[in-house]
């Protein structure tokens, strides 16, 4: 019986300033049980030879947890943005189909499948995505919260800054300043928390101008690609209502 192989087709580029190195390369790696895209890339590391026999530098990518909680390994697999660690070979290529891997396009390229998502972390800074803690010293328990509150907050809090939603969002592109759905949803999260609420206005103000929540075109692409099934459209609608209210009554309520 011929050994089963997995064919990867990878879009590579040596660096952001080397567009001339942009190229597709194909690799055949031996199939293994429970294999996923990451383990097949690991196979390429062990034997970095293309399908047509050329020895090349192994493909580089980003990963850490390998169980879809850290968000590091996001890339475009067969045309769809997702985490590559949960992209099981037997599911995405059950009959030995070619698997294409590309880096995300909405972020500056670093090399091969690695992109630089620091803007997402900057956005979290911009919207003040935190509770304003007095200090880490002992002050007794936090505010009591209902199970319902916890059940609303918890899913929002699972956002791993992976970037899928930004990649899928038509409003996020090289010419727009739109902050994207992930950070907006974090504003909802912190405005929900009993102590986070006290600074809701500050957060909303960061989303009122250009690039803020009003720039969302309601295309709903984001919610479809979010691996954590975060209700991003709900979050955007809620935050949008909060900003409107704040715009109308904010000064009065202060």
């Amino acid at each position: 019986m011929a050994k089963r192989v997995v064919r990867l087709k990878v879009l590579r580029q040596d660096g952001p300033h080397a567009p001339e190195t942009k190229r597709w390369e194909e690799f055949d790696v031996p199939w293994e049980p429970q294999m996923n895209v990451i383990s097949s890339l690991m196979s390429v590391q062990k034997n970095p030879v293309t399908a047509d026999g050329k020895t090349v530098a192994p493909v580089v990518w980003e990963s850490s947890c390998l169980e879809e909680v850290c968000g590091a390994c996001t890339m475009i697999v067969n045309g769809k943005v997702r985490q590559s660690c949960t992209a099981l070979i037997d599911q995405i290529a059950p009959n030995g189909e070619v698997i294409t891997l590309e880096p995300m396009t909405k972020f500056p390229l670093v090399r091969d499948l690695i992109v630089d998502r620091s803007t997402m972390f900057e956005s979290l800074k911009r919207v003040k995505a935190w509770v304003n803690l007095d200090g880490s010293h002992e002050l007794g328990p936090g505010p009591r919260q209902s199970q319902e509150n916890q059940e609303e907050a918890y899913p929002l809090s699972r956002c791993m800054t992976c970037g899928c939603c930004l990649e899928a969002c038509p409003q996020v592109n090289a010419t727009s300043k739109f902050i994207g759905p992930a950070a907006i949803s974090q504003v909802r999260l912190f405005n929900l928390h009993p102590s986070g609420k006290m600074h809701a206005a500050e957060r909303l103000e960061t989303l009122m101008g250009e690039g803020g929540v009003a720039d969302c075109g309601k295309a709903q692409n984001c919610v479809e690609v979010c691996p954590k099934e975060i209700p991003l459209v709900d979050s955007i609608a809620q935050v949008s209502r909060q900003t409107t209210k704040h715009m109308l009554f904010g000064w009065l309520l202060k």
Binding site: V131, L139, P141, G142, Q147, S195
Partner: peptide, 8 residues
């Protein structure tokens, strides 16, 4: 207090 959504 930092906002960890612990189960309740």
């Amino acid at each position: 207090r930092m906002g960890v959504p612990f189960n309740r």
